[in-house]
């Protein structure tokens, strides 16, 4: 997006300069207000920064914000407002897409709330034995797909993915449940554990993608 909406004072309306009682809309001149690019996805949709969210609430917020910002509703207004509408609607879409998927949301959350500016960032390396397990799983799935057909291999892998996802969801709820003021080391260990769970799931999903491309019937074999 080429436009930047840096305002001198974000607490004032960009149009009439009245002070804003809500961030989306000026109550005096009824102009929509730009969402800053530094605003996080949770705040954009008016949700608390948490790993577990109510999907129906998320959807409701998304619809409300879309009704407010969608460019279709601002077609007849001047250029500046159309720009704000386009910018805001895009951010609202992006926020909704990211937060709707629990695993995308967890990655985003760890990134947003994590210790920044560290060279290692949020990288949580899986221990070698787990990597070995992933490698062996992939090999055995490929053998299975080869010898008895892909259906069984997919079924086995889907079971693994379901288990991994259930474990991640559990870790997300656990991390939300940690009271404020808890020992930092403990908090970090929960975060690292969630990061590893997400990483493990990612590997399984990439095995799934590989298996799909591999087992797409390429030859017109007749048995």
């Amino acid at each position: 997006m080429a436009h930047s909406f840096a305002r001198v004072d974000p607490s004032l309306c960009w149009n009439c300069r009245e002070s804003l009682s809500e961030s989306d809309l000026c109550t005096s001149c009824v102009k929509i207000q730009p969402i800053g690019h530094e605003t996080d996805f949770f705040s954009i949709l008016g949700l608390p920064v948490r790993l577990t969210i109510d999907l129906s609430e998320l959807t409701e917020r998304f619809h409300a914000k879309s009704r407010l910002f969608h460019p279709d509703y601002h077609r007849l207004e001047d250029g500046k407002e159309q720009d704000i509408s386009l910018n805001n609607a895009a951010l609202v879409n992006q926020a909704f897409k990211t937060l709707r998927d629990p695993f995308e949301r967890a990655l985003y959350y760890l990134d947003l709330t994590g210790p920044h500016h560290s060279p290692q960032g949020q990288k949580t390396a899986l221990p070698p034995d787990l990597l070995m397990e992933i490698m062996e799983l992939k090999e055995s799935l490929e053998e299975q797909a080869e010898s008895e057909g892909a259906a069984g291999a997919f079924q086995r892998l889907s079971g693994k993915i379901r288990e991994a996802e259930a474990a991640v969801l559990e870790k997300m709820a656990e991390l939300d449940g940690i009271p404020e003021g808890t020992d930092r080391a403990l908090l970090l260990s929960f975060r690292a554990s969630l990061g590893r769970g997400l990483e493990y799931r990612k590997y399984l999903k990439s095995i799934e993608r590989d298996l799909k491309t591999r087992t797409t019937p390429a030859r017109g074999q007749t048995v």
Binding site: L126, P128, L131, M132, M135, Y203, K205
Partner: peptide
């Protein structure tokens, strides 16, 4: 000696 490393961004595992 066995070295096993992974890159989750792309799902690569190398042994």
């Amino acid at each position: 000696g066995t070295g096993i490393v992974g890159a989750p961004e792309c799902g690569d595992v190398m042994k």
